[in-house]
Amino acid sequence: MWRKLSKNNLFGYGKPDELGTVSSSVELYGKTGRGFVVQHIKFAENYRLYSRSHFVKAFEVAMLLIVYIAYGYTKGGATSFILITISSWFLVFSWLFAPYIFNPCGFEWQKIVEDFDDWIGWLMYKGGIGAKGDKSWEVWWEEEQAHIQTLRGRILETILSLRFLIFQYGIVYKLHVGGHNTSLGIYIFSWIALVIAAAIFKAFTISPKKHGKLPVIWRFLQMVIAISLVVGLILFVMLTTLTTPDLFAISLAFIATGWTMLSLAITWKRFVKLIGAWGSIREIARMYDAGMGLLIFVPVALLSWFPFISAFQSRFLFNQAFSRGLEISLILAGNKANVQS
């Protein structure tokens, strides 16, 4: 970015008129250090930059707002709810989508396809010796944990992570299937269900090449587990008072509790490695990042189907340039205008 300077300011000449303004001077441009951003930033790079500082916090606030919609009470009804929460929803959408709204060519379909391929490649790349965080999700994930070093830091991180259990506790006792039962057994049963879900996840993520010599039998067992899970869920819905909103609420509770367990495992990494569960923790973390990335990427991809969205974004980002008749296409193509001295 360049700032307009007068030669009077630079060299001390140029006569001021009666009003104290410079009437004769030559305009120059001095560098301010702020670039005129016309380069498209890839989706994966934006995700790495804002994931832990903005995206995670935005999803946490969004989950709280969803719970407030489902179980909260406002005296004025829907109108009061909208007036109370609209600023919070605006904050959530700003944290999630501002890096992509203000990203040049962020809604062009070709760029979206390239960004998706790049993001999937980064997410699934295992890394290795000399690999960097911008090439491998695993390396980046390990680097994000580097700040947890001292015992004091681990204790504070543990205390902060436990706040999600309050979220789970509140949802469990609001389920229709539990009725008005507030006994401790309901909460214990929720943890049993979580352990079963973790065991099922482990069963589907174990590689038969590493843990056995009978991959066909192992795949068959996975199929049996999947069918049993679906049948059991259907029977549970039919034989109990479990409702569809309950299933959605249980999913939210599992997501929050799983994030708690993941955060605690990262905090006490040494102990998790001792019991041999670090590989599973890493895969769960990969699933969380994949899920958060998809929730952000899908709306951006859907909007990119409409050509006028990309045109509107270009007009929005480069409005001053358009008003002066500047050809943005030349800048995006990397061409430089001829400068006349």
Rank of each mutant, 00 (worst) to 15 (best):
V22A: 00
K202S: 06
G121C: 09
A256V: 01
G33E: 03
L274N: 02
I328A: 05
K336Q: 09
D118Y: 14
I188D: 12
A321K: 07
F36V: 14
F271T: 14
G121K: 13
A146S: 12
Y71H: 14
F322C: 04
I155M: 12
V22K: 00
E18L: 02
F220H: 08
T244K: 09
V172Y: 07
S251L: 12
I41G: 10
V92M: 03
S329Y: 04
M287Q: 06
L247A: 07
L214K: 14
V298H: 04
L91N: 14
M261G: 15
F55V: 12
L91D: 11
S310K: 15
W2T: 07
A146D: 14
H54I: 00
V61T: 08
Y125V: 00
A203M: 07
A253L: 01
G133F: 04
K273I: 07
F93W: 07
G72H: 05
I148A: 00
A198L: 13
I200E: 13
R282F: 01
A198Q: 12
V22I: 10
E60N: 09
E144C: 08
E18S: 09
W259V: 10
S314T: 08
L332P: 02
M124L: 12
G293H: 07
Y73R: 15
S190Q: 07
L221Y: 05
E18G: 04
S304Q: 03
E138G: 00
G334S: 08
G212K: 06
T241I: 00
E60L: 00
H147A: 07
A197E: 08
S24A: 08
I331P: 01
I166R: 15
K202A: 11
M1K: 12
G291H: 06
E157F: 02
I159L: 15
Y50V: 14
T32F: 03
A203Y: 05
I284A: 05
F271H: 10
V300F: 01
A193C: 09
G258I: 01
L330N: 13
E144T: 13
I155D: 13
K213T: 08
F322R: 12
N9F: 01
P208K: 04
G14T: 02
I217P: 02
V237S: 10
M223C: 10
S314V: 03
W89Y: 11
V237N: 09
G77F: 08
A98M: 12
T267V: 00
